[in-house]
């Protein structure tokens, strides 16, 4: 090839080729980005990333299931008994220790909002079932308490609490 010439003037020619290659690589990366980014959630999906729920029709003791980002969310209007039971549990008894206070909003402890997906392998647990008066997952027997925390069974973690805010006393916005 042109190696005989290269020894005479290595730097100028090489710089040009290197510059061309680098610019080409930058161009290729810039061109690749839209191809990758198009798979990210599009604007219409992002627009549905938060859901508002009216709490007024949920009576005490009732659990409402809503859909948020394609997933079920349990909204539990807890009775005083359920709240007390949750608060009475010793943290050392919990496979995934977390106090009930950390899983609800202050002054709104009767409202428990958790994502209804078992942290084991993703099935939807059944409400008001199991030994802990919380949820029972029929797939592999995981059991959650009235704070949605894992108590027994193969699931490693408590039911996830999604980000949510109280827009008013009777309206929450999830996500």
């Amino acid at each position: 090839m042109a190696t005989t010439k290269a020894a005479e003037q290595p730097t100028r020619r090489d710089f040009l080729y290197i510059a061309t290659s680098v610019v080409g690589a930058v161009g290729a990366a810039a061109a690749a980005w839209p191809l990758i980014n198009q798979m990210n959630p599009d604007a219409s999906v992002l627009a549905l990333s938060s859901t508002e729920v009216d709490l007024s029709p949920i009576v005490e003791g009732q659990i409402l299931t809503v859909k948020w980002r394609g997933k079920p969310v349990f909204i539990s209007h807890r009775t005083k008994k359920e709240i007390d039971e949750a608060r009475a549990v010793k943290l050392s008894d919990l496979p995934d220790p977390q106090p009930d206070e950390a899983r609800v909003k202050k002054d709104k402890e009767q409202w428990l909002v958790v994502i209804g997906i078992c942290t084991h392998l993703g099935c939807v647990p059944l409400g008001h079932e199991g030994d802990y008066a919380g949820w029972f997952c029929p797939c592999h027997g995981s059991q959650y308490d009235t704070s949605g925390r894992i108590r027994k069974g193969p699931a490693p973690a408590n039911l996830e609490v999604p980000p949510y805010e109280f827009a008013s006393d009777t309206m929450i916005r999830i996500g």
């Binding site: 198009q38 219409s44 999906v45």
Partner: peptide
């Protein structure tokens, strides 16, 4: 093709969805 709907009822709208909502669609 990841965003297109090949049905007579959905095709036109899916192309507009690509043009408007899909990132760099």
């Amino acid at each position: 093709a990841m965003h297109y709907t090949p049905t007579s009822s959905g095709a036109f709208d899916s192309v507009e969805h690509i043009m408007r909502d899909v990132n760099y669609g």
